[in-house]
Amino acid sequence: MEELITVKNLSFSYPDGQQALIDVNLAIYRGESLALIGPNGAGKSTLLLHLNGILRSNGAVSLLGSPIDESNLKWARSRVGLVFQNPDDQLFSPTVFDDVAFGPINMGLSDGQVRQAVTRALGLVGMSGYEKRSPHHLSFGEKKRIALATVLSMSPEILVIDEPTSNLDPRGKWSFIGVLERMAGTKIIVTHDLELVGALCRRVVILDQGRVVADGGTGDILADKRLLAAHGLAPDGASLKLKRRG
């Protein structure tokens, strides 16, 4: 299988000295859908911001064989589409059209191509006809879909989605999972939602305290309750006992 993204010995600490990633190694292959899970503060979002070069640590991340640096940032960002967790951060334009068109316009597409890309992306997330609406007057689930469309309009090779199901009610969550399922291409999903992982992903990587602590098939990892408990992803023995008594 072709390696799309290669992360090699990536370590990163924030300006305040907090060590967020320690020697992370990871390969992402074409066509796979990978879940990146881990407790709060594990470094998931930091890793995710490295994947399209918003954060950079001297060439530790390569996209299609070439290290991401200043010179190829624009290309990297059009190939790796990042969907942020909070749609109110992702949608910053006065209308849905402007937001979905933002990426394609920055890529330098012609007017006609931009319009086409917007129509296609809105169609993919089931939101055709919302072009003129203002994001403020949409429901949370609708905003989530539009946020996804703003990235799809750039036709990225890899979709990176941060917490796609957070704050959605079960109906909204499962319909959003349906949208993601229909999406072809390579997907990296960052989440705590193990139901979502089970439904969408074949491979799971667990990140804890800045390190990759597990990397394997979804079935194996989700079945390993002890591993999940050790990294705060499932209730540990003590709280399980409490639950049984109650």
Partner: peptide
């Protein structure tokens, strides 16, 4: 900062462009 990251992730380079 988060909004800016979302803009940069979609190729924003400090120039705002719009369609006619």
């Amino acid at each position: 900062e988060r909004v800016y990251a979302a803009m940069v992730a979609r190729g924003f380079d400090g120039h705002s462009r719009t369609l006619e």
